[in-house]
Design a protein around this nucleic acid. Structure first.
Length: 659
RNA sequence: GCCGAGGUAGCUCAGCUGGCAGAGCAGCCGCCUUGUAAGCGGCAGGUCACGGGUUCGAAUCCCGUCCUCGGCUCCA
């Protein structure tokens, strides 16, 4: 069926090499003929399409190996392990219904509909059964079937049937007798053990799985929709070697240690007592120092870039939220109203925009004032669903470095570009490096505004992102109903992505608030509005930094920038002299005058992740020097005090000045 | 909101099938003090998340509530 050539041989290629092989030759044999196998391979590509190793190649095909130690290879490996897991679950839980089991970043999952949720013991049993299946050397055998055959094969698998029924004819390769689906049969020496609907490809046999581990269970809605049944999901991971699996598990353990909630407690940055309520946190003095540096930086930089600061209240009459449309579209995320004696109801603000619009509307605005950039560190409160709150990364009360720019339509490009460049600068200044993802979201199905407005705004957003040189991707149809946007994401310790910066064009609110400015022609015009937050949420950005730096902030942000450690009480006075010299330059410094041993003091400074530990004893006092022990890096002895002070001061000043 | 796992001293965690609530670290008080990750001793610290129930007896078993964590969904 693959080729149908009648000639004696077919030709396959791998780069510049070619080989003539018999028709029906498998991909693996073709690769061997081409001398193109160098390591552990799990599959092939044939003309770019992923291909099972045992599947026959076609005339003239470009054939290439897929190695196990590549992301593509691991995905195939993981997908096959997911099948193995589903088979084990079926063996141990007869009657289990299977949904889907794809590879994901660092692993795989499979969703099942079972009588009762899986327990930790179940996981162990499933894993043990998988090891048995692995040893059975089951071959994964690909087979093409028609839609009807597929439906019959999975007669007692409602989710598989739903998947089959949802596939359009055009999506599967059509042949004479109708649409083609593929299934994979797991075959042992004793016969068939299992069969699953799957596009493939798969590894040739179950013993080719070098290392895997089941990690956890979770509930997951079928097709991700709340109105669908809740299935039981099992997450696992699989790697090309035991060593890589071990490394991955160690990484997960390390990641657990750099969780911002754990570090926040250990380093006394933040406090989240139950008494406060879900999603609410306190910045302790250490954390507040970091936050103040963030706020000072963004305030200064915002002023320098032509923004005007404002201050607005935390609550407003419900009427305001009716005008803005929040009560209509956002009510379930707002705290309930406060009924007051005067009959008016008030609401805690979930966003700052209405206030900034009112600031704009304080008097008649001229086109000469545009663009008008209004900025505020605005604290907002959102009643997030209980299951989604996550430390300070997803909170119910948080502060945005929020700004709204009101401008003429022809100014949108420059304004959006300015915001995206600003966002890039924020990332650089705070040491997060390149964002994990920059996404431009375009017009959704249901949207407000004219075609011309959208086209112009989308072009503006894309042009703006390209001007910054950041790599970005486009999410078609993912924009807000009121305008296109660009979001910048970063990862937390375990690789989850969080949106930090956001820049959004809005045609809707200016209409709802009937905003206007007087143009050069003396007539009223509607301004365009750009929403923009660069940290996004200060709490979230802060937390991503904590995890990114593993609590060891760069010197300019560190709560305690230097600690002076006298080797014995006799040198406490000189230590205080050293501290005073630093403090006079604005350095945050403490002296460890405890009666601990030197080793204990050093350890204490290290576990507190203080950037500079300055050790002083007799020789230092004599020579007016210090021994410098940076948190990271080599220690240096006998450094003149003035040099150290100048060095630390310069480092902080340079970093604070930004990228 | 939904599925699952949890909540014992400030922190990390023991405490089995019900029988007097523990350790290490941190804290406090002493003693000891010169060179780069833990000196020694003592003291104090708990409504075992909260409320009900079963029991002669509950940290332990059952029910409910609150909170936390991992997911799903949703979002900065």
């Amino acid at each position: 069926m693959d080729g149908g050539s009648v000639s004696e041989t077919i030709t396959v290629r791998h780069g510049d090499d070619t080989a003539d092989v018999a028709p029906g030759t498998s991909a693996i044999d073709a690769l061997k003929a081409l001398d193109a196998v160098r390591g552990q391979i799990v599959a092939a590509t044939v003309d770019g399409e992923e291909w099972d190793l045992e599947r026959p190649v076609v005339e003239g095909a470009e054939v290439a190996p897929v190695y196990a130690d590549t992301e593509q290879g691991r995905a195939i490996l993981r997908h096959s392990v997911a099948h193995l897991m589903a088979q084990a679950v079926t063996d141990l839980f007869p009657g289990a219904k299977w949904a889907i089991g794809p590879p994901i970043a660092d692993g795989f999952y499979y969703d099942f509909d079972v009588e009762r949720p899986f327990t930790a013991d179940d996981l162990e049993a499933i894993e043990a059964r998988m090891v048995e299946l692995q040893r059975e050397r089951q071959r994964f055998v690909r087979q093409e079937v028609s839609r009807d055959e597929a439906l019959e094969l999975f007669a007692d698998q409602p989710y598989k049937r739903e998947i089959i029924e949802r596939v359009e004819d055009s999506e599967v390769e059509a042949s004479g007798d109708g649409a083609r689906f593929t299934v994979y049969r797991n075959v042992t020496d004793d016969g068939e053990a299992w069969v699953d609907l799957c596009k493939g490809p798969h590894i040739p046999s179950s013993d080719r799985v070098p290392a895997f581990k089941l990690l956890r269970t979770a509930g997951a809605y079928w097709r991700g929709r709340e109105d669908q049944p809740m299935l039981q999901r099992i997450y696992g991971t699989a790697w090309e070697s035991r060593k890589r699996l071990k490394e991955h598990l160690e990484f997960l353990e390390e990641a657990r240690k750099r969780d911002h909630r754990r570090l926040g407690r250990e380093l006394e940055l933040t406090h989240t007592p139950d008494e406060l309520g879900p999603g609410l946190s306190i910045f302790l003095p250490n954390g507040a120092v970091v936050r103040k540096e963030m706020e000072d930086w963004i305030r200064d930089e915002t002023l320098a870039r032509g923004y005007q600061p404002v201050y607005t209240p935390h609550i407003a009459k419900e009427e305001l939220w009716r005008i803005s449309g929040h009560l209509e579209n956002y009510a379930e995320l707002m705290y309930p109203g406060m009924e007051l004696d005067d009959g008016a109801a008030y609401r805690l603000k979930p966003m700052n925009c209405p206030f900034h619009i009112l600031a704009f509307g304080a008097r008649t605005r001229s086109y000469r004032e545009l663009p008008m950039r209004i900025a505020e560190l605005g604290t907002v409160y959102r009643y997030e669903r209980s299951g989604v709150v996550n430390g300070m990364l997803r909170a119910r009360g948080f502060t945005q470095d929020d700004s709204h720019i009101f401008c003429r339509p022809d100014q949108v490009v420059d304004e959006v570009a300015g915001c995206v460049e600003f966002a890039r600068d924020v990332y650089r200044a705070f040491g997060l490096g390149e964002p994990s993802r920059v996404a431009v979201s375009t017009r959704p199905e249901k949207s407000f505004g004219t075609d011309a407005q959208w086209a112009e705004a989308e072009d503006a957003v894309i042009a703006a992102v390209e001007r910054t040189g950041l790599a970005y991707e486009t999410d078609p149809g993912e924009g807000a109903f009121y305008g296109p946007k660009v979001d910048v994401h970063a990862r937390d310790a375990i690789g989850r992505e969080w949106q930090l910066s956001t820049v959004q064009v809005d045609f809707n609110l200016p209409e709802r608030f009937e905003m206007s400015y007087v143009g050069a022609d003396g007539a009223k015009h509607r301004p365009v509005m750009v929403h923009r937050a660069l940290f996004g949420s200060i709490e979230r950005f802060f937390s991503v930094m904590v995890e990114s730096f593993n609590g060891a902030f760069p010197t300019w942000l560190a709560p305690e920038q230097a600690r002076v450690v006298p080797v014995a009480a006799d040198f406490d006075d000189y230590a205080r002299h050293v501290a005073a010299a630093l403090r006079s330059r604005g350095v945050r410094v403490d002296v460890d005058a405890s009666d601990d041993t030197l080793g204990a003091k050093i350890r204490s400074a290290q576990t507190s992740k203080v950037p500079y530990t300055l050790v002083v004893g007799a020789s230092e006092q004599q020579a007016r020097t210090v021994a410098v022990r940076p948190y990271r890096g080599e220690q240096r002895k006998d450094v003149p005090l003035d040099d150290v002070v100048g060095e630390i001061d310069a480092e902080i000043t340079t970093a604070r000045a930004g990228a």
